[in-house]
């Protein structure tokens, strides 16, 4: 047989094999986590693990609710901070600013996206923790160590902003110029054009970007762990400490494995994270499809 046809077949099959490997990895991780957390699932019911707040590994009590709630609080608040900043800055850079500004800003955003998360953590400890402790919390009448949900959310928001902003800029740039011209020529102001046409046209892209931001935020570990306080409790306000799931795993894995079932408990924490992200991604893929259909 002809050599180049052989090479062609090999190339096709090999790349197919590699693609399957990538997907299989996800399944392998899931299987591994379920296997490793099995002991704790045998001992405790799923509802006890997910909805109990009692965390007392020495007594064999493993309730994950505080961790789960901390995780969601930090994720949601960081997105609430990051999303408006990203959308409005990206819109300014694409629609209103001179082209030269975008050319300067875009590489800077990419540099921010590449800064290691531990640096954001240290910066949070040095700058944001004291600022919250000495200024912001007293202003609202709270006392806090500064290591709290709000600090974690702020640091996380700052980390998510460059990634989301870069994507949003690309999404906005994809809107054809003729569409802008047509809207303006109907007598729209710039702001009306942005609000009524450009954002609407971009809605699927904006949603996809937000989903990516949330996925990144849920799993972010080091920077959050450094500033969030790591106290096992359900935070009642933004100035109380929390303890998100990734921080639990990172702080304890390899440390206290002499405690019975502790190992399985941490694996279960990882399993929860994986399940949340999987569920979230599938749900958003579905919503995205619906939105795309109804708009474009």
């Amino acid at each position: 047989m002809n050599l180049r046809i052989l090479i062609d077949r090999f190339a096709c099959r090999f790349s197919a094999f590699l693609s399957v490997c990538c997907v299989a990895l996800l399944a392998l991780i899931a299987v591994g986590l379920i296997y490793k957390s099995w002991p704790i699932l045998l001992e405790h019911s799923l509802s006890e693990l997910l909805f109990s707040t009692i965390w007392s590994p020495m007594k064999g009590k493993f309730g994950f609710l505080s961790f789960i709630i901390s995780t969601f609080q930090i994720t949601i608040f960081s997105l609430l901070i990051a999303f408006p900043i990203c959308l409005l800055s990206a819109t300014y850079l694409v629609e209103l600013a001179p082209r030269s500004i975008l050319k300067i800003v875009l590489p800077l955003i990419d540099i921010l996206a590449g800064v290691p998360s531990v640096i954001y953590g240290i910066w949070g400890v040095l700058m944001i923790v004291p600022c919250i402790r000495d200024h912001i919390a007293p202003f609202f009448g709270y006392t806090t160590s500064g290591y709290c949900i709000l600090t974690g959310s702020l640091v996380l928001a700052i980390m998510v902003v460059p990634v989301m902003m870069h994507l949003l800029i690309q999404v906005l740039q994809a809107v054809p110029h003729e569409l802008r011209d047509s809207t303006l020529s109907l007598g729209a102001t710039h702001w009306q054009m942005i609000k009524l046409v450009v954002w609407r046209k971009c809605l699927p892209g904006i949603m996809a970007t937000t989903i990516l931001g949330i996925s990144k935020a849920i799993g972010e570990t080091i920077a959050v762990l450094m500033v969030v306080g790591n106290v096992v409790q359900i935070p009642k306000n933004l100035f109380e400490s929390g303890y998100p799931l990734p921080a639990l795993i990172a702080n304890n894995y390899g440390e206290m494995l002499s405690i019975p079932q502790y190992d399985a408990a941490l694996m279960f924490a990882a399993l929860i994270l994986l399940a949340v992200i999987l569920f979230f991604n599938m749900a958003s893929a579905y919503i995205l499809k619906r939105v795309t259909k109804s708009i474009t």
């Binding site: 003729e178 011209d181 020529s185 609407r200 046209k201």
Partner: peptide, 12 residues
């Protein structure tokens, strides 16, 4: 009124 080269239906 402006009529462009390619149709530009608004996303609605």
């Amino acid at each position: 009124g402006l009529l462009a080269q390619r149709p530009t239906p608004l996303p609605m």
